[in-house]
Amino acid sequence: MFEARLIQGSILKKILDAIKDLVTDASWDCSPNGMSLQAMDTSHVSLVSVSLNSDGFDKYRCDRNLTLGMNLISLSKIIKCAANDDTIIIKAGDGGDKITLLFEAQNESEVAEYEIKLMNLDSEYLGIPDTTYNVTIKMPSNKFQRICRDLSQIGDAVTISCAKDGVRFGAAGDLGSGSIRLAQTATSDKPEDSVTISMQEALCQSFALKYLNHFAKATPLSAQVTLSMSPDVPLGEPLLFNVCVVEYNISDNDDENPSTIGFIRYYLAPKIDD
């Protein structure tokens, strides 16, 4: 028996909006610790990992580990039927071939019930090494979204150059070139507006904007985004780990005491000069 109740159903809507255009079929792994999902896009260039802790739910019961494989487009269509302020309840029986979604209106006078068919997915599961990244940039998520969108007008790839005092996002294409430079901010009253750079060495790497624009769909989940990267190592060195990790924390919207209840992490392989 599995049952998870989320008063802020809008969080699930935002999560689906953030992943459904990147991966179509994926499995939710449900355990007593929470719900998680990991899937690659069809070209195997990016991977999305979502985690929601059990204590982020208002009620959570998971008697045994379950894998709920489903089409995310279908799930998204059904989740869209919930109002933003609805409570969403996910229920699954043991060994069933479907899950039930209940949407409770705030005044509890209306309950909508939907069922979605489950799929048996033979998904490829990649082991993500526990790695330390040399460069971490924290910045406002809406600024990151804007930069990726604007630079897509110029070229297919963004080159991220990071030094201690700031980070530069640049793109070049047939029409010309463009760049945006962000300086690290002094400690401010508004942490959500701050740009923080933590680094061991300077870095310059290129990534496909098509994917970063997909990742930026998670912007409504979090005011800040964290980019983690490591620099290239010369040829002949042991295998480098220079994927870019774009991370959004998932918080509950408790204004007085917000707490992190999970995350979305996107991993993106770099573009490398031949």
Partner: peptide
Amino acid sequence: TPLQKTLYTFFLKS
């Protein structure tokens, strides 16, 4: 044009 790497280069298939 730069080559697009895939994640198989970085992550272990498990």
